[in-house]
Simulated scan of single mutants.
Amino acid sequence: MTREEYEERMSALEAETARAREVHIAAKSRFDALCDKQRVLRTAWQDQQKAAAASEKAAQATVAPAGFVIKNSAYPCRTKPHRGRHVHAAAYRTGTVSLTTACNKQQDEETVDHLDEDTPVTCPPCQRNTQG
């Protein structure tokens, strides 16, 4: 190998090394950017999961009423028969002092306790009939 061949090969290798270095720097920059995006995505996912778990825990911590709270114009009254255990959704029959419940029971006004209209309905048939 002559000196000229050596210098020619060396300059070709130096040029190829410079191109490879530029490609390596660009690839490293791309790799670093992708790693940053992964890190941001991972932290966003973890924050979302923490928030979802916290909201689910808060939802489970809220105390649900002991019945079904309804607002139904067809049965605006809440009644509980004396010595009865269920609260019924009821309405006055036209022209009388009798009440008809959502579960089709007839109640006399004097034989029931009248409760607030936001009292939860605990009679299962009344709940079914007033949900729809």
Rank of each mutant, 00 (worst) to 15 (best):
E4R: 02
E5L: 06
E7I: 06
E7P: 01
E8W: 01
E8T: 15
E8S: 13
R9Q: 15
M10Q: 10
A12V: 14
A15P: 03
A15K: 08
A18Y: 09
A20R: 04
A20V: 11
V23R: 12
I25E: 09
A27V: 00
A27L: 08
A27Q: 03
K28H: 08
S29E: 08
S29R: 02
F31I: 02
A33H: 03
A33S: 05
L34Q: 13
C35L: 10
D36A: 08
Q38W: 05
Q38M: 14
V40K: 03
L41E: 09
L41Y: 09
L41F: 07
T43V: 06
A44E: 10
Q46M: 07
Q48S: 14
Q49Y: 05
K50G: 02
A51L: 13
A52I: 15
A53I: 11
E56M: 07
K57Y: 00
A59V: 02
Q60G: 15
Q60K: 09
Q60R: 06
Q60T: 13
V63E: 03
P65S: 10
A66N: 12
G67S: 09
G67P: 11
N72W: 01
S73G: 11
A74Q: 10
A74V: 08
A74T: 14
P76T: 09
C77R: 00
R78A: 02
R78P: 02
T79R: 00
T79Y: 05
T79K: 02
K80Q: 15
H82E: 08
H82L: 08
H86M: 02
H86G: 00
A89V: 09
A91N: 06
T94S: 15
T94H: 13
G95R: 07
G95Q: 05
T96M: 06
V97H: 12
V97C: 07
T100H: 04
T101H: 00
C103H: 09
K105V: 08
D108G: 01
D108L: 06
E110H: 14
T111M: 03
T111E: 07
T111K: 02
T111R: 01
V112C: 04
H114F: 08
E117D: 15
D118M: 05
D118K: 01
T122E: 05
C123R: 06
P124L: 01
P124M: 07
C126I: 01
C126P: 04
Q127M: 14
R128V: 13
N129T: 09
T130V: 14
